[in-house]
Amino acid sequence: MVKVCVLYDKVRFEEKALYDTAKKKGIKAQIIDAKTITVNNESKRKTLQLGDVVLQRCISHFRGLYLAACLEFLGFIVINKFKVGETCGNKLITSLTLAKSKIPTPKTHFAFSAESAIEVINTTGFPIVLKPIIGSWGRGVFPIRDEEVANMFIEMREENDSPLARIYYVQEMIRRPPRDLRCIVVGDKVVTAIYRYSAENEWRTNVSRGGKAEVAPITNELEDIALRAAKAVGGGILGVDLMEDEKRGLLVHEINNTVEFRGASNVSEADIAGAMIDYALTIAKR
């Protein structure tokens, strides 16, 4: 019998739901703290009791990413793969990957110094959106509406100690309703789709910032673009985020590697955790 391992560093609603669902399905499941694992370059797979398939669910992006690399080195099947995590965890790489696969995505500029970032912003015009290339929950994602504020944000980024702060990701502001779309893609299926409405006095739609979820219809257009986007980054269990541009229709702006689905579960009747466990079993049996 296939044994599923839920790998966590902090047990949230999602990790609990995955573990409980696996047990309810009568599957051998375990939930393991990633913080307790060590690997060396002579380790053998059998030294780690992680079953046949690992659902990598760390809240820390880099912990989950590099642990996935180590586990794949040992021969474990990890969902999602290291390469998928590496692409989705970096907005710049995601944007390039989407563009290469001709997935509709917002126009985005990349600049590598404060001066060139300011030049790009002034040439593009306002409003624009400045995002960190690595980061979640809308952290550091700012709408910029004039030159003075642009200069302030660039100055703040220059003073930041992280070298990644000096990589500038400048995106066009999409004219959209006060909501975006989150599609939960599991393998080759869209399990559910939700609208995320911004909270009051908040432009970002993240549920972690008070955004409210509502079930969205899975139209053919939505299904097609979400599945193509998921495939472009390597597939697996993914949260594909889209915006509804007034003229161009759906645009994919982000893909999440360890998708949170508490907000979606509250409003959707789909068995999200069940679909994820079934997918893990299918992958393990391949």
Partner: peptide, 11 residues
């Protein structure tokens, strides 16, 4: 004690 929220926390 729980880990404090890291810059790379999220989905």
């Amino acid at each position: 004690p729980a880990e404090t929220i890291g810059e790379d926390w999220g989905q």
